[in-house]
Computed example of a mutant assay.
Amino acid sequence: MTEEFKLRIFTEPQQGATYDDLLRVARTAEAAGYDAFFRSDHYLRMGESSGLPGPTDAWLTLAGLARETSRLRLGTLMSAATFRLPGPLAVSVAQADQMSGGRIEFGLGSGWYEEEHTAYGIPFPPLKERFERYSEQLEIITGLWATPEGETFDHSGTHYRLSESPALPKPVQRPRPPVLIGGGGKKRTPELAARFADEFNLPFVDQETAAAQFERVGRACAEIDRDPAEIVRSAALVLCVGKDEAQVARRAEAIGRDVTELRANGLAGTPAEVVDKIGQWRRNTGITRLYLQVLDLSDLDHIELVASEVASGLD
């Protein structure tokens, strides 16, 4: 059965947002009919933003939203494996899943932003070690969730060792919340996706690049006799939609971006233009979910406009 196409809201609160800001966006998204609310997992602003009033923790945020929303799927694009130990992270995500009644989705990446590690005292190993730790974390976290109640989980790896873990608590979703993996690595990333991913996400790339990476994931699945169709394909693009050119320009200016550049690299323009571009993405890459990166979190009308005039134009 073909999966229904879904639009999801994706936020970058490290650029400057409180929990209450995020709650307003999430509630607006839920009321407007979006499928999910996702957030980045970063502790330091990027670019010229002041970052005020400071970062919010991704999993604390999602736990709070779990109690203050009722339908939205909730998740991260992506949590960094460098930020947390795998055992406690498995506990946090399982608890948030319980708090939400089974609406959590778990995006995990290797970690890449060195400056935020330096700013908050987080170790930042070389790339090879980060990827080794990332791979082990995926194995441990999914293994903990999959361990039957009453049994224990053990892991003896290069970087982590677990002995006789009770592997509790369990998430509501069984055998686990959906696991999201993403990125452009041509060999190891597709191999990890084939082993662990329920969804593969490509952020801020062009359609040709996305299609090629999805094909690599498919080949990696075939090598281990997994059906590539089991992995949902998704992308993330910056959003800048307006009823007319003046509104598009105002929204682009509010996020410090050029309209021409946004039209080329994101989802920008009138609702009709954006419906057409989403159609191109679907035809050329096979995505069934699209994460709309909303950078001006005060502009709730933007979210409602897309729900009423873009989502309604998608078949």
Rank of each mutant, 00 (worst) to 15 (best):
P271F: 05
V248S: 04
L62I: 13
T2A: 10
T288V: 13
T158S: 13
L295N: 12
V238Y: 05
L162F: 10
E261Q: 13
G185F: 04
D20I: 11
R8P: 01
G279L: 05
Q95M: 14
L290R: 06
A197L: 02
A246N: 13
E245Q: 15
T260W: 07
A146S: 08
R226Q: 02
V248C: 10
P13C: 02
P53I: 10
L267Q: 07
R174F: 01
G242L: 03
A36T: 03
A80K: 08
I303D: 01
A31T: 13
Q95C: 14
T270N: 11
E4M: 09
G266E: 00
G269C: 14
P169Y: 08
S70V: 13
E273P: 13
T56Y: 11
D244P: 11
K243Q: 13
S163P: 01
P190A: 07
R130S: 06
A26I: 02
V217P: 00
R133L: 06
G313E: 09
R176P: 02
T288C: 12
V241G: 03
H42V: 07
D315I: 08
S49I: 01
D57A: 14
A193F: 02
V205W: 03
Q207S: 14
P228W: 04
S298D: 14
I122K: 06
Q95D: 15
A307H: 11
R8F: 03
I140W: 00
P125C: 02
Q293S: 11
E191G: 06
T142Y: 00
